[in-house]
């Protein structure tokens, strides 16, 4: 977790990503995000829930510098990412994990990881569960779970403080999805990354420290969950929030 020391030498958590009044409209003027205000911290895993087409992926893209907001500003460590340069932001500050893995098909897992890192890729691949032999195969010959591990390894190799994952378990079976969820949780808690996951999966959302819901372009914080498995509580809060939205 990123901290800064105050004059009294107290350790205070600092926001790594901050969205201020961020809005986004498509070219046909349809507004998909409306005045989103959000602060995300290092060392936490966030889950963003919402129905299809509600703008979850768009929000993730804006945080990752893949696009620019129509309104508002996005800050990384207090600096406006557009002013600092979106390409540099993508290169240095954030790493993406996609539902469809998005690996480069003519590169091996090792080479895919080396795309973003000058560090030896093999230890990182082993850390996410790939053997030496698997690391030398054509990526398309790996299973979905293995490909997603390569994608995670690539994200970790970049040494970015923020990992943005768009439906990272969407194409995976339950067991593999759980393993991937654990890896992402480790990234947040042990490697002090800020992990933001866009998902439809309640199971994955349960693993998150904070759950956010995007509804009709507006963001609502649903809960702050610890890691003690308060899934019942989470469901209850989801229901209560729905009621609140309906009112």
């Amino acid at each position: 977790m990123m901290h800064s020391k105050t004059k009294r030498n107290e350790v205070v958590s600092m926001n790594i990503i901050e969205l201020k009044n961020v809005g986004y409209a498509y070219e046909n003027k349809r507004k998909v995000l409306k005045a989103i205000n959000l602060s995300l911290e290092e060392g936490k895993m966030y889950a963003i829930l919402g129905s299809s087409g509600c703008g979850k992926t768009t929000l993730l893209s804006l945080m990752g510098g893949l696009d620019s907001p129509s309104d508002g500003q996005i800050f990384y460590e207090g600096k406006n990412i557009e002013k600092a340069g979106l390409s540099a932001h993508r290169k240095n500050n954030v790493a993406f994990i996609f539902q469809s893995y998005n690996l480069i098909d003519y590169l091996t897992p090792k080479e895919n990881v080396a795309l973003t890192s000058k560090l030896p890729p093999q230890p990182i691949l082993e850390r996410v569960g790939l053997t030496e032999e698997e690391s030398r195969r054509n990526v398309l010959k790996l299973s979905g779970g293995q490909q997603q591990r390569v994608a995670i390894a690539r994200a970790l190799a970049s040494d970015a403080k923020v990992i943005l994952a768009d439906e990272p378990t969407g194409n995976l079976d339950e067991d593999t999805a759980a393993e991937i969820a654990n890896i992402l949780k480790e990234c947040a808690h042990q490697m002090n990354k800020c992990v933001v996951i866009v998902t439809h999966s309640n199971e994955l959302a349960k693993q998150a420290d904070e759950v956010l819901r995007l509804h009709r372009g507006e963001m609502k914080m649903l809960d702050r969950l610890n890691q003690s498995g308060r899934s019942g509580c989470y469901t209850e809060i989801v229901l209560q929030t729905y009621k609140a939205f309906n009112r």
């Binding site: 932001h89 993508r90 290169k91 998005n102 973003t116 970049s158």
Partner: peptide
């Protein structure tokens, strides 16, 4: 898209 997403210009 992947190359741009990982910060290659």
């Amino acid at each position: 898209g992947i190359l741009l997403a990982v910060g290659i210009e």
